[in-house]
Amino acid sequence: MISKDYMIMAAQGIHARPATTLIKLTKNFKSAVSLKKGDKVVRLNSILNILSMTIKGGETVCVIIEGEDEVSAATAIDLFFTEELKHL
């Protein structure tokens, strides 16, 4: 299992567009990916569940990845949160 904290570097937070991108990204991997904010945890496959967490810019979320390809999934997700998110 890999887990890592990310600070959300986008003013609008995780709104519909980044949430969609994130779900599509995680579909490329077999690993189960979850998102944790405070004590709320959701699977990263439901856009409604992600949006209902209302993750805002500057907040910190924890990404938890578990599965056979968790290392490559973690790399892709890392790029998403540190780079791609800023441009969405």
Partner: peptide
Amino acid sequence: LSLLETQIELLTDPQI
């Protein structure tokens, strides 16, 4: 385009 992509995610949302 991104709106449509979001619509597809909403349509196929496992929670719904």
